[in-house]
């Protein structure tokens, strides 16, 4: 069997999505307070998990290509549209801080029982309509500053791919080191227990309750 297999069936999609959902929920990313604590500098889980995942997959792809398991760039790589991707990233960053989720995490937020995730998803549907409604005005920005097809960072910089992967590994190590000193100053990491207790209190499931009396 040659790889990538270019398998586009529903069962593989369901299975791969299942793994994705389990990993996001396991990381704590069904909780908008856990997620947004990244931008409060309180809990670097978002950067840690995301960068660790990017490096894991990048190292795996580099190994597969070096061993001849797959051909270089035999899988989908976005063609850069510099302005659209930068401004789109800015909007998603702002919407994440305000709304508490990104599209993938809102899916696991919803399946973990959050109504605010449902409101966020309804908002995203409206956002798509706004984009589609204004598409004729937005199109020039959407297609502006197009880079070379499927352009990679190592092609842009003219260096070997392994050097970029190595730099990314170093960046991940720096993120963990910085987090270890910064997180405690801003309140520290949020545990599953913190989130559950905060949620119970805020939702009025446990008005007063044993936990609060305990502090008195």
């Amino acid at each position: 069997m040659s790889l990538p297999a270019y398998e586009s069936g529903a069962w593989a999609a369901l299975f791969l999505g299942l793994l994705f959902g389990i990993a996001l929920e396991g990381a704590g990313f069904a909780s908008p307070r856990k997620l947004t604590a990244q931008f409060l500098l309180r809990d670097f889980a978002v950067l840690k998990v995301m960068f660790t995942a990017v490096v894991t997959a990048a190292v795996g792809l580099w190994l597969c290509e070096s061993l001849g398991v797959i051909a270089a760039k035999s899988y989908f790589i976005h063609t850069p549209y510099y302005w659209a991707m930068l401004i789109g990233g800015l909007l998603i960053g702002a919407g994440f801080a305000i709304g508490g989720y990104c599209p993938g995490t809102s899916a696991v937020g919803l399946s973990a029982g959050r109504l605010d995730a449902a409101a966020f998803i309804a908002g995203m549907v409206v956002g798509v309509w706004v984009f589609a409604g204004g598409y004729s005005w937005i199109a020039p920005l959407y297609t502006a500053a197009q880079g070379p097809s499927a352009q990679t960072v190592y092609e842009l910089l003219g260096v070997p791919a392994w050097l970029i992967v190595l730099v990314m590994v170093v960046v991940v190590a720096i993120v963990y080191r910085v987090a270890a000193t910064v997180e405690p100053r801003f309140g520290g990491q949020l545990t599953a227990k913190d989130i559950a207790e905060g949620t119970a209190e805020a939702s009025g499931h446990e008005p007063g309750g044993a936990a609060r009396a305990h502090h008195v």
Binding site: I87, L91, A94, G95, C102, G123, V126, G127, Y142
Partner: peptide, 11 residues
């Protein structure tokens, strides 16, 4: 926030 993200993801 969802509106911003929905729009931004399409852009």
């Amino acid at each position: 926030g969802g509106i911003l993200v929905g729009f931004g993801a399409r852009l």
